[in-house]
Design a protein around this nucleic acid. Sequence first.
DNA 1: TAGATTTGTGTAATCGATTACATGATGTTA
DNA 2: TAACATCATGTAATCGATTACACAAATCTA
Lengths: 343, 343
Amino acid sequence: MSEKTTIYDIAKALNITAATVSRALNNNPKISQSTRKLVLETANKMNYKQNKLALALRSGKSNNVGVIVPRINTNFFASVIRGIEEELHPEGYQVIICQTHEDENREIENINTLLNAQVDGILMSISNLPDENNHYIERVIQKNIPLIFFDRKKEIKNVSSVTIDDYMASYQTTQHLLEQGCDKIAYFSGDRSLEIYEDRYRGYEQALLDNNISINKDYIINIKSNVVEGRDAVEKLLALENPPNAIFSTSDFAALGAIQKLKEHGIKIPEDFCVFGFGNEPFTKFMELSISSVDQSPLEMGKTAAQVFLEKINNKENKKSEIQVVLMPKLLIRQSSTRIASI
Amino acid sequence: MSEKTTIYDIAKALNITAATVSRALNNNPKISQSTRKLVLETANKMNYKQNKLALALRSGKSNNVGVIVPRINTNFFASVIRGIEEELHPEGYQVIICQTHEDENREIENINTLLNAQVDGILMSISNLPDENNHYIERVIQKNIPLIFFDRKKEIKNVSSVTIDDYMASYQTTQHLLEQGCDKIAYFSGDRSLEIYEDRYRGYEQALLDNNISINKDYIINIKSNVVEGRDAVEKLLALENPPNAIFSTSDFAALGAIQKLKEHGIKIPEDFCVFGFGNEPFTKFMELSISSVDQSPLEMGKTAAQVFLEKINNKENKKSEIQVVLMPKLLIRQSSTRIASI
DNA sequence: TAGATTTGTGTAATCGATTACATGATGTTA
DNA sequence: TAACATCATGTAATCGATTACACAAATCTA
């Protein structure tokens, strides 16, 4: 009924041993052509499918890799995952996706679950694992399971990473806004305990300093990546004695909220106020007022992270080395920040 | 080094056998309190983690379930998956997500991969598996693995399903557009070989007939779910001798494209033209002109599908029954279709 | 043609956890 | 105290595939 054919069934049918069947199926050279042909035919006829669990148990390789992301319903993470799958499926790996929903405990749970599932590697974009919980990471490293951070990384020994140059992206964006004539640029930051947000902040800061503009702390607002927080932040900014004339938001969603609120206040974009987002979510392009944003090459990021994993798993000598790949960001300058037509 | 503690290691450390260790860890009553305590302490000290692969091999249960969707980067599917995870994680299941990208071969590959991985169940939203490939589905059923369709289903014996009442959603939407004074309603259809699209079409058709409006075949356009197809479809419609004054799009993305193009033609929405979408993608709410849409309760759909799976896996008698759950759709009437303020 | 080599299969251990059955050590009852 | 129940633990098979080693038959060499 439940119809599970094993190599023992095939062996019995042909009056040989399971070892021979296994050899025939695995192209082991120590087998006669006639037997091989017979086994392959019978296996086919009996609809044999290799039991990956048995294989995994014996070999110690599950052929699963785990991917941990904050959430999958943004274009960015969905595209990274697609990139990972495109590289890994052809190599015979299944991808197990876990979401943290930005919850630190969930992140730890996910790591444990993946380790229990005996994954061969973990690719993750960290949520906000505090330093005191680094031992969860250490356990992965000790087990000799390749760990690769993408996008949101943390500097840890023996852990590889694939990121974009967030500092550069941020510097260039700020520079662009200055060139558009915006001299009072507010900044929506993410949690700066994460490297990417720290790097982006530094880029913003350095660009201002290089243009002899001092930092106004009132312009720096911490937000979460959603529309409502963008709206609220604008309310705060407009209430200032000296309100800004541009916003650089490290989240497209917050940028959208900001634009909504600015319009409600009758402020004209980009004439009176420029807005720049980050992430190139599809909607930024579709809006009536298209939103400028930084493209993070998510597909490429996913593919690269997968390649780093393969590199680590295949070259045992390299296992302990840290591979760090930094991709180049692309500024997509759209209507929300274009006062002066570019060349 | 690689530090894998097994029950044998614990047994050796305590000078007892693995069987006893196993019993202690599994709360087997046939064990003394003192031994149990000792084993648990030692297991903890040695950082023991159960090897799920060995467990899976022996029990025949992998504690993995497969989810197959066309893609994960829409809010709808991402939310369904979240719902599935929320129900299944607490029960100890891991969710393996596969994307088909609407490709029929990819769909077959995914089914095979999941079967190889010995998943305990498959939840899927089919892409466009043609009837002649039904034997891939049959194989799943024969293996006695619960199969549950959600959203995009197919009528197959022994397969359960969770859907919304697409006919009703479509009927009510059409009725709503008629009440807004739109008497020439164009319809963007998906592939009608899929039940949901057939049902939606029937709802549209019946609502028109019930209002004594005959079907204009020129108004029925087949589209794929993206912005560009929506734009192109509008071009075709506006070129008609007798163009429509409303569009009911079974895709939010196509509805967005349609609105863009209509505006480019200087057509006022909703005054001159109403548009209604389907799916309640987040952007529909955020647009300057918010887009009316049908909410499909994706979170609830995912949770329900997961519950059906649990029902099937736990009650062996029910395994052969087909459970079919139909959720109620919710019309979200926003600016793009509101000429007459509702009560 | 005796001895060496090659070739194809079989035997049995292994991966880690579970569990039916066996066994020995207690405790209980008449 | 003989007979028996109870309790805790050990023994060994099992899940399915792979592979080092053993071995017999076929082939080759001088």
